[in-house]
Amino acid sequence: MTDATTLPAAAMPPRSARRRILMRRLWRHRSFRVGAGIVAVIVLMAVAAPLLSGGQPNAMSLRNRFAPPSADFIFGADNFGRDIFTRVLYGARISLWIGFASAMLAAAGGALVGMASAWFRKLDGIIMRIMDALLAFPAILLAIGINAALGPQVSSVIIALASAYVPRMARIVRAAALVVRELDYVDAARVSGAGAGRIIFRHILPNVMAPLLVSVTFVFAYAILAEAALSFLGIGPPPPHPSWGNIIAEGRDYSVEAWWIMLFPGLAISLAALGMNLLGDGLRDVLDPRLKIEA
């Protein structure tokens, strides 16, 4: 073209720099930093549990029943003389797995339901009323019901919690997808003859990942708390395998004379939930689409 001379390369950051800017913004966000730090420490400790402890969370020692916190048992011991520190470390593995797996499962289910609702407008009314009905039900009651039906296994806890959080996820995905589907690039794809599959998977889904990712962190935190609640009610992961919830549940009969049995797993739960929430806050602030990465 005559005066449409080939323009110089735009002086803007390339892809890798965009990532770097995103990472730098995240790192500069104080609550993200603190949250990520907490979560990282907990995960590392769970992974390194055999190195940090005796490696036998279920080893009983009648001699040490109800040993209070000391140099040997830094978190004390329980009614079977099991080391609480070791149990909390191994418990992190189960609790974190339950949190992670149920958040992921809920995200997948929510994405499916939410996208269906946003795309097939005729189904929207029905789908969202069902989701509303499920939301009106306390999540924990729903989880109790599902868990009771499936029997006491770690997997049934995960399925129960995931199902309980699907409606929230679905709402978030639907809201974001409804915005994206009205954008010009979706129309551009339609003008080119693109079908529903291409539009959903190429254009809409990738652009609703940010809010989904943020809510995954929050559901992760809820799920860890809910696992504790289920265990407390006796329908958590089956003993003797330790989860933070069932360590507390087992300690509840001795809460006055052996407070440490409940205190330390309780602290671990609070810390993990706090860490995930802080991390999620940071992600939400940084991934906010209103903060454009330019210049």
């Binding site: 073209m1 449409a4 080939t6 390369a9 735009a10 965009r18 990465i293």
Partner: peptide
Amino acid sequence: ELVGLSAAFADRFPHEFSGGQRQR
């Protein structure tokens, strides 16, 4: 090249371009 941009832009992302370039 037909719209007056460099073929080297193919691997980039939209946010790297100004309004006029995006319209091209």
